[in-house]
């Protein structure tokens, strides 16, 4: 399936919403925030898509107000791969978990919670993954400052 077909397939299942190809990434479909996680459940369980392999999920920080959340998944049956993007509010990023659909998403979400400060309601074990438990701040955000961080002169 091409990304255009994915967008069409999702549009047929959720007629109230718009699904567009991301202008930045030709292999990525933009998903409205309110369709997480039922849209993912559809992609995983639908016979036409069968996305049974979760690659990764990560964030891209766009200060001052946007935080993109990118999911990537793959079907071992049809051998197609797609990225899905959800746009979050940077001040208060919050998105329902998908870790009950793919176990692999568990640590990916913990990592994003740790490094970007995204909150995942419904996640069973939301703790910091990389940094010590009492660390303050979310290091991979663009405006992060820390005494240990020496910025490289250009």
């Amino acid at each position: 399936m091409t990304p255009q077909e994915f967008a069409k397939h999702l549009g047929a299942n959720y007629p109230d919403h718009q699904f567009e190809i991301d202008p930045l990434n030709e292999n990525c479909v933009l998903i409205p925030l309110q369709l997480v996680p039922q849209c993912f459940e559809l992609l995983r369980d639908d016979d036409a898509t069968q996305m049974d392999y979760f690659d990764f999920s990560t964030c891209v920080d766009h200060p001052p107000d946007r935080l993109d959340l990118v999911y990537s998944m793959y079907s071992t049956v049809y051998k197609h791969r797609i990225q899905l993007k959800v746009v979050l509010d940077r001040q208060n990023p919050c998105v329902p978990t998908v870790s009950h659909l793919w176990v692999n998403a568990n640590w990916n979400e913990r990592e994003m919670y740790d490094l970007f400060g995204v909150f995942f309601p419904g996640h069973k074990d939301l703790r910091r993954l990389m940094m010590p438990d009492d660390w303050e701040g979310h290091p991979l955000r663009k405006d992060y400052a820390h005494p240990n961080l020496v910025v490289r002169p250009d």
Binding site: P139, H146, N148, L149, V150, V151
Partner: peptide
């Protein structure tokens, strides 16, 4: 890892 690293002991 001297520059730009927040987690390495220098």
């Amino acid at each position: 890892f001297y520059h730009d690293s927040y987690s390495v002991l220098k």
